[in-house]
Design a protein around this nucleic acid. Structure first.
Length: 249
DNA sequence: GCGACAG
DNA sequence: ATCTTGTCGC
């Protein structure tokens, strides 16, 4: 047997191990700076028919991630459709590098949604947009890669200084995010891609009708937690339609 | 060296 | 994010 062995008997580790070994923060930083230069900070759309909410959950051993895209009618705020996708999680959570952990299930999901013609006008992503150390949080990352308008909606601050209802950049002093409150709850809203901060805030305020998050991400979050239950009986790469009918139970 | 640190 | 026990409020 040659030094390379073969696929079946290889003891070089599986694909996830190899992805993990090839990964390093220096290259990740470089990719983020590259993509950050492509972010568009103005509205790249005119009307919103459907708004999407994107969120993820993990199996208890964290080996699998499930991404959910909830499609909501922007006028009636009724749930239209809901899709999910499952993928292995190879990269650990590292502040500032969240996208490298969550992109596999998310990109699988969005590429399928696009192929099937179910891409919404804009997507609300659970995480920051440009309010990020290298101006490319996961919301912006997804927006640029899929060339779709995105809004970053995070529950906690990652960078910047809070001044009232805004978050300003440590160095430039520019506003990088706005804090939207509803009762005791608050979220950090930032530009993801192809949307202005003012419009992003308006969209969050219009869709935040109850709970701790605006409706798109709230619905995605609920489905994501329901789908955790079937993760142990599911193959990575699976794509499907959410099968739960009750929006809020 | 010491804190801060999306999900 | 996930796990987990107890507590507060509608």
């Amino acid at each position: 047997m040659g030094s390379r062995g073969n696929i079946q008997s290889s003891n070089l580790g599986d694909v996830c191990d190899r992805i993990r070994l090839r990964f390093n923060s220096r290259k990740a930083f470089h990719a983020q700076r590259l993509l950050a230069g492509k972010v568009v900070l103005d509205n790249g759309f005119t009307t919103i028919e459907k708004i999407g909410g994107l969120d993820l959950a993990y199996s208890r051993d964290r080996s699998l991630g499930v991404a959910v895209l909830a499609l909501i009618d922007f006028q009636t705020l009724e749930l239209d459709k809901c899709y999910y996708s499952v993928a292995r999680t190879c990269i650990p959570y590292i502040p500032g590098l969240l996208a490298f952990r969550e992109m596999p299930p998310a990109s699988l999901l969005l590429s399928r949604a696009r192929k099937l013609g179910f891409m919404p006008s804009i997507i609300m992503v659970d995480g920051h947009g440009i309010a990020h150390p290298r101006k490319l949080g996961i919301a912006s990352h997804i927006g640029v890669v899929f060339d779709i308008p995105t809004i970053g909606v995070a529950k906690k601050r990652l960078v910047g200084i809070e001044q009232g209802d805004m978050v300003v950049d440590n160095e430039t002093g520019k506003v990088i995010a706005r804090i939207v409150r509803r009762g005791k709850k608050k979220v950090y809203v930032s530009i993801g891609h192809k949307v202005s901060l003012a419009t992003a805030v308006e969209i969050v305020e219009k869709t935040w009708i109850t709970g701790r998050l605006p409706l798109p991400t709230l619905v995605a979050d609920r489905y994501t937690k329901r789908l955790k239950e079937i993760l142990s009986r599911v193959e990575p790469g699976e794509f499907g339609e959410c099968r739960y009918n009750r929006l809020l139970e």
